[in-house]
Design a protein around this nucleic acid. Structure first.
Lengths: 329, 329
DNA sequence: TATCTTTACTAATACGTTTTAGTAGAAATA
DNA sequence: TATTTCTACTAAAACGTATTAGTAAAGATA
């Protein structure tokens, strides 16, 4: 359908090479006369020629595409993150092939295969469960890889993340500082390292201050169905609570829903969220949180990945981005 | 780096054709012996061969990729929409090359060029300003195109959308039904057709019911800087207001922020939003809204596009998806 | 005038696939 | 035994590009 260099060459009575050279601004280097160059350029412009990037990539070995694999492009963490990544890459003339795993290893498998087949030049990955094997596969194929947000402890890759333990610790101290003497932790029953780290820090805080630890682990996979009632009955049981620390923003939102539905001022104690949300500052009471700085996270991922692509794969490093404590009480 | 069919062929002492045929499950059709088939399959499995999708696409003319162009993948409308699209396409063995224009025509230009060059098999586009020319280009290149959410009146494409006028009308009636006799409309100073339609319906409602129309048009491009104070002073000026109808959810959020910052119960009248938001049902007061059913929207876009791809481009049609009125007062 | 340079290109090969026409040898048929 | 049919493959062309070595013609040099 679309015209190719070959056809253009025929129509202009010159060789394919000439067309290719002119189009790629190598006319001068190849001593193509100004006049012919103009003729080609004009013609190409006139018919609106678009080079076939597939063929181009095949010939050059460069796809100008990088893969971005997240859990859910639709959520309020990965969506804006993806936007930053896209923006940063656009400036370097790269484009993004993205995909959401939805936490399904089979999806992840397919996505990674597809990306490798598409010869993406690098991959940014927020791994979910059981992705060690896939990461290994990516590395075997010598495709630069940057992992962010979560990682698999037993596989060495470039890893961009926040300090979960430290951030969680800051959160606890803050709650203490505003008068909470008995706050609980709401988390999910997942063994993702970042979740474990957040919980660990809470437990350490309890051990150090002598506060009684109260932890509720909600079922990740049936959160929507079970979460609200589970949380409600747990709060009812735990008398004396004077604060709640949620380890993710969606848990905090779930918390808000649970505690609101029973009408009135069910909770007159502070809620704290790990991860911000665009409406946390207009809720009543306002919700303080740990904020992951998305842009620095994205910038680091992109910078590290591009360096790998440019200079070849180097030995894995960790990059820790510090979080912000947003005080709203 | 990655092994090619050619190398595999050499190593196995057979021809490239054989390898290709076996890999593509055409061994039987091509009368390759079971034994050789096994040998190839095993070897391919063993070395973890991944076909080069670029070469494959070049040979077959199919890229198995579709382009999705939205304004901002990070926002709460396009993000979840994109997720649905991805999920639906995954089932059909298609993948998504997405991009955000951020409302910048130059970005849009680049994105579309890139997608055409990548030979996407079809494009789903939520056009922003001045995209008529680009749409025309896509069509010229005979690439199936489905436009959603917004369209350019003077260019014929398949167009999936909600009925903005009708929905806006429903919203007005609802506000009236819950006792608002003097509600205003907050919108942006854009001439996007869907925004105009929402405003028009409000004006018609005013004309029919005799309600005085009060409209504030906020500057789209400087919303963050100017929006809040502009809204505050407008509300202060308009005495007697007893309700606000925001034509998008981000305007409604801006409204919440404006009206909250002045402390206390600045607004004791209902707010209504065009487009839902995950927290609208836990705010106090709860916010009613028009909800665009994302999944049906996505489903229709995908269905229409795939049909175009399969059966060839057909004459443009419109597909109207009906909205839901979510009553929360 | 014979040789060397320069100019302005082109031919040929490669990238990694798919696909179709072709073929050597074995088996079946007449 | 000569011909036909099968079997099990392979050769070759094609997809659309980039790149490098090569070349014919013109001009410069000695």
């Amino acid at each position: 359908m679309a015209k190719s260099i070959k056809e253009i060459a025929r129509e202009l009575n010159v060789s394919k090479s000439t067309i290719s050279l002119v189009i790629n601004h190598k006319a001068e280097k190849a001593r193509i006369s100004k006049e012919l160059e103009r003729r080609v350029l004009d013609y190409v412009e006139k018919i609106g020629y678009k080079p076939n990037a597939l063929a181009k990539s095949l010939a050059t070995g460069r796809s100008n595409t990088i893969g971005l694999i997240v859990e859910n492009i639709g959520d309020s963490f990965f969506g804006p993150f993806a936007l930053h990544v896209e923006e940063l890459l656009r400036k370097k003339n790269y484009h993004v092939l993205y995909s959401s795993t939805l936490g399904d290893p089979q999806n992840a498998q397919d996505i990674i295969d597809f990306m490798l087949e598409k010869r993406v030049e690098g991959i940014i990955l927020a791994p979910t469960i059981n992705l060690e094997e896939h990461q290994r596969k990516i590395l075997e194929h010598k495709v630069p890889l940057v992992v962010f947000d979560r990682n698999s402890p037993d596989i060495a890759t470039h890893y961009v993340h926040i300090d979960n333990g430290d951030s969680s610790r800051k959160a606890c101290s803050y709650l203490q500082s505003i008068g909470c003497k008995n706050f609980g932790l709401i988390t999910i029953d997942s063994d993702q390292p970042q979740m474990l780290a957040r919980k660990e820090a809470y437990l350490e805080f309890c051990a150090e201050t002598g506060m009684q630890s109260r932890i509720l682990q909600l079922p990740y996979h049936r959160l929507k169905q079970k979460g609200i009632s589970a949380l409600q009955s747990w709060v009812a049981k735990n008398v004396g609570l004077d604060g709640l620390f949620f380890t993710t923003n969606y848990l905090c939102i779930l918390g808000l829903k649970s505690l609101r539905t029973e009408g009135g001022k069910q909770f007159d104690f502070p809620l704290f969220s790990f991860d911000d949300h665009e409406l946390f500052d207009i809720l009543n009471p306002k919700i303080s949180c740990i904020q992951q700085p998305l842009e620095p996270l994205a910038k680091t991922c992109v910078r590290v990945l591009l360096k790998e692509i440019d200079r070849g794969i180097s030995s894995p490093k960790e990059y820790v981005i510090s979080t912000n404590l947003i005080k709203r009480q």
